[in-house]
Amino acid sequence: MLSRIAFRSTRKSVVYSARSFGISLRRFNEIPKIPQSGSDSSNPKKRPLSRVAIGSSDSGKKYAENSSIEFASWKAVLLLLVLGGGATYWFSKEKERIRIQKEVDSKRSIGKPLIGGPFSLIDTKGQPFTHKNLVNDNKKFSIIYFGFTHCPDVCPDELDKLGDMLEELKKSKIEMQPIFITCDPARDSPEIVEQYLEDFHPDIIGLTGTYDEVKNCCKKYRVYFSTPADIKPGQDYLVDHSIFFYVMDSEGQFVDVIGREATAAEGVEKIKKQIDAFIPKEEREARKKSKLSFLYK
């Protein structure tokens, strides 16, 4: 918009200067003055008065339109609002991005992550699935949920919510690796988990393992679960466990949790922000070494 205004005014000034330097100079100063002799001498016809009259009646209006009043016009106000608003939006977005980056970075710099770590389980096809499966180069984040197939109401609700989130993210072209890990390895064999997950989003990967493997994994993710003691084989029971979605970045590092109180839309928002703020390791290190590193501190 600004460039258009500037272009228009330059186009006009080109027209003025093509007519006579003396006239445009006079217009510029807004002082009625006899044209200078220098410009007169270049003019072969030497009829300054009549030319002034024609020139001023014609371009005088245009000149008034194009004067400093232009800067207070509605166009300028609109321009200010649009640019100002845009800049404010961009800065607040960038600020939030850097805040998230710092937050994730602070978790990283402790050395050993508080949440997450090596684990070794098997998927519903019996194939091994470890923490290495969380790592990829496609910026594909993982979302992990701990539950159990005999769960009365919370897990199905949460898994439905996960399905909603995945669909919503797909609309924004974001692919995730959703993972369901059972806290009830005694009953949840790969077959049972597979059957159970058929009711939910097809992308969800179900994981199980031996009691010790699952226990280890839950411990790494700070998931508390308790199976009632002394259960006879075949007896029905419920497992008490904590409910969180864990968002892991494509380097297998923990970045955020989504609690039960969060709606699918809020969860999607959180994930999008995290993915947006994610910087791969090489870039992170390059930033630290660069001269501009103070900008990110």
């Binding site: 197939t149 005999h150 769960c151 199905p156 005694a186 009953r187 064999s189 077959e191 049972i192 059957q195 159970y196 058929e198 009711d199 084989p233 075949g234 029905d236």
Partner: peptide
């Protein structure tokens, strides 16, 4: 959803979506 192959197991399989509803 669809076909659920019931296998012989010591423990009962968990209720599926229809049962839950």
């Amino acid at each position: 959803m669809g076909f659920f192959g019931k296998t012989e197991e010591a423990t009962r399989p968990p209720p599926n979506k229809a049962k839950r509803k």
